[in-house]
Amino acid sequence: MNQHTVKMRELARELLSSGQVSLVLGWEKGNLWYKSPPVFISRVEDVEKLIFDEFCHNNLAKYLMDLVHHSGKIAVFVKGCDSRAINRLLQDNQIKREKLYIIGVPCPGLKDPDDAVGKKQGAEVKNSAKCATCSYPNPVVYDALLWETVPVNTTKAPVEELIAKLDSMTPDERYAYWTEQFSRCIRCFACRNVCPACNCRECCFDQAEPDWLGKANNLSENQFMQMTRAMHVAGRCIECGECERVCPMNIPLMAINKKVARDIAELFGECAAGLDLEKRPPLGHFDLNDPEKFM
């Protein structure tokens, strides 16, 4: 058992047995060595389930929305990206700070579970693509920090190269590229449901009246869905990369999200989502001196 896991269990045990919290959200180990799914712990004896390893991908902040009516305080483990989700949800009034005990876990960068498929436990596994561009591996909001912060890596990630490649294409080539990607979409909505920026009470895609999104799976509807999603999470995306990780059809969704985030930074100045509670999301406010390029 690694030291991280030991520390997690220690703190969780203390919090639960002292009655400070009534629920702990963490990660556990299931039947597969390369998956660390979420776990909900409310009894001290279950604390032994908790683990931390290189496959703790899930952003547990998403579950806080299910638990708004939970009586008592909730302890939640957050990596850097997850902590930004907490800030975002706090800004959107989805959750209450006083009901949370946030335990920060500086994240060394995770491994790609898809690369581990078929391999023996302990085998060499690729780093997860989503962690390669991470600028905030250290939690930005927490009540306790479990171990020392980690250095920020500054390597150029594949997603940046993809955006550069797309930017250099002609519009028709770019359209053909996205056509190929979106035509694969099976509309399982895993991207939406895993996303902490998607916190609407009822998603427009689920509404029957007005019928925003047709039920037929065709290119046009898929484009509609993915572009709408890109606009809806614009300025609120914390770049955790979960949408791309969970997409069973491997659609490069983070290329869109990163591109939009970069555009917003270029247009309205640096405003990465979920870093500063006081700073409102870029499309939720304005500046009198905003650019007027095409008005």
């Binding site: 080539e173 770019r174 939009v260 499309l283 304005f286």
Partner: peptide, 26 residues
């Protein structure tokens, strides 16, 4: 003012998706 921000972003998104940005104006 909100429109201005939203559509500056939207026009760039349309361009990134391969649309001609001139087709969308404000």
């Amino acid at each position: 003012y909100f429109t201005r921000r939203r559509y500056l972003v939207m026009q760039r998104l349309l361009e990134f998706m391969g649309m001609d940005p001139a087709r969308f104006q404000a």
